[in-house]
Design a protein around this nucleic acid. Structure first.
Lengths: 232, 232
DNA sequence: CGCACGCTTGATCTATATCAACTTCCGTGG
DNA sequence: CCACGGAAGTTGATATAGATCAAGCGTGCG
């Protein structure tokens, strides 16, 4: 879905390792590269002048961060949540490389447009969902982006409660209480960076996502790519 | 900025007129076209199952709605706020046309990526800004997208208070009070669908946008395109 | 004329923030 | 191995931004 696997890796001029908590891109840095995340998790964040922070999205292993549309100073930062290995390609080279390859261009556009779609989902969460719905929705989304393929219901992720808070426009304290609620009613538990989906169906309900076109599509996409995996 | 002016108009197979309050695309419709807005305003919206509505963005005259990344049922709707004239191009034809034209492909990608950027701005507003900051920010953003070019400080727009509310994750009532506040302190007034910027500098402050990279860029872009206009 | 929609204003409620204290976990240095 | 310190998580008490409910006003339109 968010992985294109193509041009950025083809052009990789160097890989880079970033330690947990460090920035791959600092807000304001000149943007001149795009990345593929080889391993580890990143988030994209926006910083208000007074220090309030909003997380704009997460990048999981295999996903592509296409910054080729950006110019000048980065309006946001990219921070590693774990140790991260990325491969980088300069946007200039990428642009040149794409010049002859319309196919690839369009593929990359697809990637950008999927990021936009995820952003729209987040807008909707922040604007119109309750804390509980937001948390449920995020956990569900990440669960699916990690690939439904293997061991079903348990999954470990590097999110802290205060990262969740900054992604969902909430307070760490409130995220804590919300997670506690969801655990107590037996829907999901997220303890020790370990996500355990207790009742999948109820989780979809809690997220208000049963008919949510965004998540539904994500489900189909991952189902499809899981099927593809099987064929190999 | 959000206007590409290129492929969609080049390929227009038909124009269409939509009356105020009608949908150009209904949520769930199959998406098979992209549009350029020739006149009038639209908004993109997401509908939760229980009727809550979140507006994801606005489309102003001259701007392009590229849906070429979308397939299957539309996850969102597109509604006309005024009578709207758009020109439409089928995504299939658009894809074919783009095949030989990498330049144009990239231009379109730029457009998509700018929409994503606006979405990130909205995420930040909804997640981490107060009602007052949100309203100020939105008014400022729209003011600039309308083109700073001509008559400075007054501008008429078709936003109702409840549309503003649905865009900013607030209640119409609260938007009303917030607008009243901003008016009383002499920063902006938005009365009768008429935006009057009383104190531009304070408005940037209220929006918390003085160093906001997103809006700053928008300012530069429109300044640049205004300069270009002059040259013609 | 009357009705619907948009706006305004007041009273009250509530989801979430804020403040504060305490615990548990984990890595580091002695 | 233990002692320490800092980050993450937990829990309670209280505060507040913004929601909800309700009523009334204007105005354009069928």
């Amino acid at each position: 879905m968010l992985s294109a696997g193509g041009p950025v890796t083809a052009l990789r001029h160097h890989d880079r390792v970033v330690e947990a908590g460090e920035d791959l891109v600092r807000p304001g840095d000149p943007v001149d590269e795009s990345f593929t995340c080889l391993s580890g998790w990143l988030f994209t964040y926006y910083l208000l002048e007074d220090g309030r922070r909003q997380i704009l999205g997460f990048t999981l292993p295999g996903e592509v961060i296409s910054l080729i549309g950006e110019t000048g100073p980065a309006p946001f930062g990219l921070q590693a949540m774990t140790q991260v290995r990325v491969c980088a390609a300069s946007n200039a080279a990428l642009g040149r490389w794409l010049r002859g390859r319309c196919e690839e261009s369009q593929r990359l556009m697809l990637n950008v447009s999927q990021h936009a779609t995820l952003a729209y989902g987040l807008v909707t969460s922040l604007g119109r969902r309750t804390a509980r719905e937001r948390v449920a929705y995020l956990l569900l989304e990440l669960h699916m982006r990690l690939g439904t393929a293997s061991d079903g219901n348990v999954r470990s992720m590097p999110l802290t409660q205060s990262i969740i808070a900054d992604a969902l426009g909430l307070t760490a304290v409130h995220v804590n209480r919300t997670l506690a609620q969801l655990r107590e009613v037996g829907v999901v538990s997220y303890v020790n960076r370990r996500l355990h989906i207790v009742d999948g169906q109820r989780l979809w309900q809690e997220a208000g996502a049963e008919r949510d076109p965004l998540l539904t599509r994500l489900r189909n996409d991952t189902a499809a790519s899981a099927a593809k995996q099987k064929l190999i």
